[in-house]
Simulated scan of single mutants.
Amino acid sequence: MNDAAKRCGFIAVLGQPNAGKSTLVNAFVGSKVSIVSPKVQTTRRRILGLTIHEQTQLIFVDTPGIFTPKRSLEKSMVKTALEARQGADKVLLIVDARQKSFEASFAVLKQLGEHQSIVLVLNKIDLIDRQRLLAIIQKFQAFPQISDTFMISALTGEGVSDLLQWLAVRMPQSPWLYPEDQMTDLPLRLWAAEITREQLVLQLEHELPYETYVETETWENFENGSVKIQQAVVVARLAQKGIILGRQGQRIKAISQRARIEMEKHLGHPVHLFLFVKVTDDWMDKPHLLREAGILDS
């Protein structure tokens, strides 16, 4: 394809925790590049999801949810989210349309500033009636930075292709910045760590200590196409270790099995996954450990 006909641009995907940002990015890309769970603040780092639509390469910047931070980890997450809009060609504000109050979303708009053009994306519309949707749109129209509004369901796909098409024709003319077959900028080691962390969140739910991350320590490829991966599940206190391991190690075994299946599905070859638990005191408040976890920029 002639570079002169190509378009390429960045779209920042912002919103509160659990608004459906990662689900939407995965729907755009057509594959899992960002982990998803019902637990708030699942996304901790900026992740790029890449897709091609006709002559346009769209680069979606999935971000942590915007909320009131307290600890170093939370502050770095919110800072990452707010900085994502810098240099973006379009900024999407994803809003869970089921909320009873939208004050937190209004607060996000105020943080972004009056001069930031925002595309409002009301998500989860399959779960509420149209009359309520119209009332919600009216509330957001009070903010002059809202340039356009879309109603979608990232989970069912309703409205997603229309939004993708709309974005594609509005990206600037530019050569593509990534290979056509690349779906994310996340290195495989970090991606695999995220897949395991997703299973921790899904299987432990409210039992999962917030001070938990996964580190891929070794990655070994074999001639038959299989890969051996060793990962550390890092917790902040010794008392949390037993929660991850479970009785006689059954819980971590189940987590490993589900993560391995998920990795094999996306990698397309056998995976031998080995997990162990490591204790690192108060890692969330140590910038050098946040950088090692891929959460804080170097």
Rank of each mutant, 00 (worst) to 15 (best):
A4D: 12
A19L: 09
A19Y: 02
G20A: 02
G30W: 06
K32E: 09
S34G: 01
L50M: 04
Q57D: 03
V61E: 02
T63M: 07
T68S: 14
R71W: 00
K79I: 07
G87D: 13
G87M: 12
D89R: 01
D89K: 03
K90S: 14
V91K: 07
V91N: 14
V91Y: 13
E103T: 13
A104Y: 12
L109Q: 09
Q111A: 14
G113R: 14
L127D: 06
L127F: 09
K139I: 03
A142C: 02
I146Q: 01
I146L: 01
S147M: 03
F150P: 02
A154C: 11
L167E: 08
L167V: 06
M171T: 05
M171I: 02
S174R: 11
E180L: 05
M183K: 15
P187Q: 11
Q199R: 15
Q203A: 04
L208A: 04
L208H: 07
P209Q: 00
P209Y: 04
E217T: 09
N221C: 05
F222I: 00
I229S: 03
Q231D: 02
Q231C: 07
V233L: 13
V235F: 04
L245Q: 14
Q250F: 07
A254Q: 15
R260G: 09
I261K: 15
H266L: 14
L267Q: 09
V271N: 08
D282T: 07
E292V: 03
A293Q: 03
